[in-house]
Amino acid sequence: MISVNRLCKTYKVRQQTSSKNILKSLFQSEYRYVKAVQDISFEIEQGEMAGLIGLNGAGKTTTLKMMAGLIHPSEGTVTVNGFIPHELKKEFLKKIGLVMGNKSQLWWDISAYDSFELEGQIYGLTLKQIKEKIVDLADLLDVKELLGIPVRKLSLGERMKMELILVLLHEPSVLFLDEPTIGLDIISQKKLRDFVKRYNYEKKSTTIITSHNMKDVEELCKRIIVIDHGTVIYDGLIEDLKKYSKESDFEEIVAKLLQGTQGQ
């Protein structure tokens, strides 16, 4: 179970001074404060799949990273399965998994299998367990033949599947997916979604997805949390949202919702 309570995050950003006076800019810097997340609260149940939606810079990734423990909140609290994420306790880390669509964890030059072995050892699995897990997951994702090929020779879709295997080796009960389908073609997107859905159904893992791809969210999640300018503007079921809207297309609905706040 994840519970987020009045979460805030403020970044201190160095301001770029004009290049007129180099010496001055070398030693002095001006700062400005950017509120990335302001007063966000929500709860996610065990086994639930929730989508975080918002425009670029709305604060989705920041929120996700705070839940994973990468970023220290400025104010407010997060608890994930009873742990405070940013303490980065080992028992906590063994229960979570993070996939970032644009940041690969695989070793570029060698086969995915080699990467998996090291990863499994890091999480304290035995070689036998690792092997079973890999075969299992590779079967499900239909990449068994590709396990021995150097990662750099894989297509983007194949690589993403490997990224997923890597993260799922230790069976995390909380899964964070940050833009998992970025750059993938429609068939690969579909396969990936089907897999995530199935995994969630079988393992009852709590899953949080951020994506700009509304198809991802619509197919996978029952519930969405829409964030704009660092605050939650909608938290509820997709169904409800559809019910109260004139539009039938989900993407249109969300676009309307976000445009509404932009206009204010």
């Binding site: 990273k65 994973a68 423990g69 990468l70 980065l88 080992k90 880390l93 063994k94 979570i96 993070l98 970032m100 940041k103 690969s104 964890q105 890091i122 999480y123 304290g124």
Partner: peptide, 10 residues
């Protein structure tokens, strides 16, 4: 930013 992945390892 790949260092994030390492931070989340036990």
């Amino acid at each position: 930013g790949q260092i994030h992945n390492y931070l989340l390892k036990p």
